[in-house]
Design a protein around this nucleic acid. Structure first.
Lengths: 182, 182, 182, 182
DNA sequence: CCTTAAACGAGACGGTACGTCGCGTCTTCCT
DNA sequence: AGGAAGACGCGACGTACCGTCTCGTTTAAGG
């Protein structure tokens, strides 16, 4: 059922994805889908999370900066590949008028990634790379915000070097100078 | 007609906004709407731009940072107030699968704002506040990215002080130190 | 179970009567119902017969005509009261395309009444009130036909005096004249 | 559209007749059907009347009895042939719980036939064949009632000679004897 | 008394049809 | 000529019941 949803999404895209089609492909009745999810977005949300969650491990290379770059690059790869970015965006769109979906998106998609990011930052602080007063929300929004923005509007390309620059920009003010920050 | 679209959008929200309703409220036939726009998104897009464009003047306070904060705050106000943020987001969602709309959104909505931002940055360079090699896309994405991100996901509040911090974060590396940069 | 069927029928009427509802109200599982009856009509049929059968005794007043009037009046009362007429009709409708139901309806509902009618007529013949060649089907259809017709189409009222006239009409040609018939 | 309804009815019968199928066969959208009729019964009703109405002319043979027999035989032929009887019955069934349909059935189907019957009776009175106080409802119900009854319950065959007997039975008491009635 | 099998309650399921909604097209009629 | 009015084909929606099908769980008879 979730598999059918993902398959179809990848075939026809979100707006042309119908519950009838999911039901048909999953060999399931429409009523059964409605028994478990309130609407298309919820099905797709769950299917999406089930597909995506495995990819969540992040490296601990010793360098906070490198770890963040790696994580951000993985995210951008995910959002670009297999049209999944389109899906997140579509869900993001519906989430503006569907509070349940918004919650699901925050809890299921954003929070795990954000927690991983926070961990990386904490390690940086522990290692002395970052200042202890570093505001993780500020830093993470400073990294992911620009990434989402470019993918959403498509006004500029987004490659690894861009990501590196966003990370640098966000880390700059919270990094202890090489000679220490006293 | 555009007025009807905006009115209705503000009444019922984007997903429950129908072309029939726009036609009825505008005292116009549906066919007439289709004569001028290819679909709902395009109508709403134009209506949205017509509503929003006037608010585009930005101050020249003498301080690049202050100008950028002002501009970003104005944007966030716009996106929050009058449910227009929801509208941009809905359009952003549709734009992922509608290339024409994506173009319209970039050209009509994003570019003017971005050009204004670039101007502000250029003034900063001219005034010697900013380094001449400052990459305006990097800076502007560093400011607006986090703002959109917070509004889209709603994972954290967004007030003026947050905006100020985003601006500082983005400007930090391109600012000539008060004592000069040499 | 039959009680539940009748109750529900009287509450919501035949077309909105569902097997789920019968099951729920009877505190019984749907499967159990299907174990015993092939479909809704069969359940209702049986429930209906169980409700109705007791009312089958007929008087033997000495006058064939009076007995027939009594019987016909009892029938029309039954069909009018408690919406049971509606039920017979609904079953009659389904019976047109459901041979089993048609048989059940004939055997369970019509035949007993008809046999009682035939008995009354036979008594009349025995008593010398009616001609011996009297065709009971002709007479009984002549009495009950008009009654059903009026109830089905509702094109005219049906009170006791109408019934008396139908009986007279049907009996007229088979009655031995008061002065004898030879 | 009506043609499609009739065709399908004759192919699959009333209970398996769906609005989707009518729409498909008529090359018409379901919504269009619902724009014009509130439900399946109403469509079929109108289709039925359109099919049936032409057959309404009745002979004026000079003999009231013969005219009535002819008329009744035509009715019984109609109800037997082409499964239309089944249809009338199905509609009759639904009419028990659908007041609009009941009205349509009375006005569209029963009344014209009844009026024709009344005319025949009136001619009989005018000609002196029938007593002037003859109650047409009584007579007509006495003829058609038994016919419907036999077709509905199917408890006995119905051929021309039965019909003749029903007519005789109903006419008997209102006929002026051959030698006059005084 | 215990076993064991039938009958049961609960209720999910595949399916069919329902009646509704909105889209974008098209025709008609009026101005 | 141009537009308001609105019917239409289309296709998806979400709902309601259908009749079938597991599942445990009674429950009553037979060993």
């Amino acid at each position: 059922m979730l598999a059918a949803a993902i398959d179809l999404f990848e075939t026809v895209g979100y707006p042309r994805l119908t519950i009838d089609a999911i039901a048909a492909r999953a060999g399931v009745s429409k009523a059964t889908i409605y028994r478990w999810w309130p609407n298309k977005a919820a099905v797709v949300m769950e299917a999406f999370l089930a597909t995506v969650e495995p990819d969540l491990a992040f490296p601990d290379s010793g360098s906070t900066r490198d770890d963040l770059v790696e994580q951000a690059a993985a995210l951008s790869r995910l959002l670009t590949e297999r049209r999944l970015g389109q899906l997140v965006l579509a869900l993001l769109g519906e989430a503006q008028t569907d509070a349940d979906l918004a919650t699901a998106l925050r809890d299921g998609w954003q929070r795990p990634r954000r927690d991983a990011g926070r961990e990386v930052l904490q390690r940086g602080v522990d290692r002395g790379e970052l200042r202890p007063d570093c505001d993780s929300d500020l830093v993470l929004d400073g990294i992911y915000g620009p990434i989402y923005l470019r993918l959403l509007f498509g006004h500029a390309p987004l490659d690894r070097s861009d990501i590196r620059q966003f990370v640098d920009q966000a880390l700059d003010r919270v990094t202890r100078g090489p000679s220490g920050d006293v």
